[in-house]
């Protein structure tokens, strides 16, 4: 198995006036391509901060981050945008769909930022991503016309559409009832079986149990990895 994520002594500190917040205090681990990993830990332990760094939304204060062999920890803003677009798919707790766009348009968005792609290719790819999450029949609906579970499926389709190396999901079931959350987990399971690498933050032990490996964090550090 090839290594997809390799982080070494990753730290992140925030300066809040006079005090320094140590959100991450030297985190190191690797994730192999095709793995399904859960990230757990109490509130404020640094899970989201870590996800942001892994998703190239932010840069670490110190340490090294290699994604698929490329050092992405010190990239320019523009280069990080490109990594986000081509290698990362985000799924958020609050879905973060654009309310004025249809499901299809939301899914097309990452491809539109890719540059020179023919409109027909973009459309077809987006439709097939919606098919994968079982929402092809709702593609012209606006987010407000969809249930929470359906919205999260659209968000997953949007994360999938660029065929990314890594899917990062920060509490994807956090805003859903357990039944719907379970459906979303089944979908992620299925994606994993198709070879996707998924890193998922959760507070729910049942959810974590459905992954291959659980990383536990506490106060900015990984305390267990099994």
């Amino acid at each position: 198995m090839t290594t997809l994520i390799n982080i070494h002594q990753l730290t992140k500190t925030y300066q809040m006036g006079d005090s320094t917040v140590h959100a991450l205090r030297g985190v190191s681990f690797t994730v192999a391509s095709g793995e399904f990993v859960a990230l757990m830990g109490p509130s404020g332990s640094g899970k989201s901060t870590l996800m942001h760094l892994l998703g190239c939304l932010d840069t670490p204060t110190n340490g090294r981050y290699e994604l698929a062999g490329q050092d992405v920890g010190r990239l320019s803003r523009r280069a990080r945008a490109r990594v986000r677009n081509e290698q990362i798919g985000f799924v958020f707790q609050t879905f973060n769909l654009l309310p004025r766009l249809s499901a299809l348009a939301n899914v097309m968005l990452p491809l539109q930022y890719r540059g020179r792609l023919a409109g027909s290719v973009v459309g077809k790819t987006a439709v097939s991503a919606l098919e994968q999450v079982g929402l092809a029949d709702r593609m012209h609906h606006k987010p407000t016309e969809l249930s929470g579970g359906q919205r999260q499926r659209v968000a997953i389709a949007r994360a999938l559409v660029t065929d990314p190396a890594l899917i990062l999901a920060d509490e994807p079931t956090g805003n859903l009832d357990s039944q719907t959350g379970q459906e979303i987990m089944a979908l992620l399971q299925q994606l994993h079986q198709n070879g996707r690498t998924i890193l998922l933050v959760t507070h729910d032990a049942d959810v974590a149990a459905q992954t291959q490996r659980v990383l536990r964090m506490h106060d900015g550090a990984v305390i267990s990895n099994q």
Partner: peptide
């Protein structure tokens, strides 16, 4: 603001 955040997250550059 949130829309801008989403667009940035899916790969919009500053120029976009």
């Amino acid at each position: 603001t949130r829309e801008i955040g989403v667009r940035l997250a899916v790969g919009a550059t500053q120029r976009d």
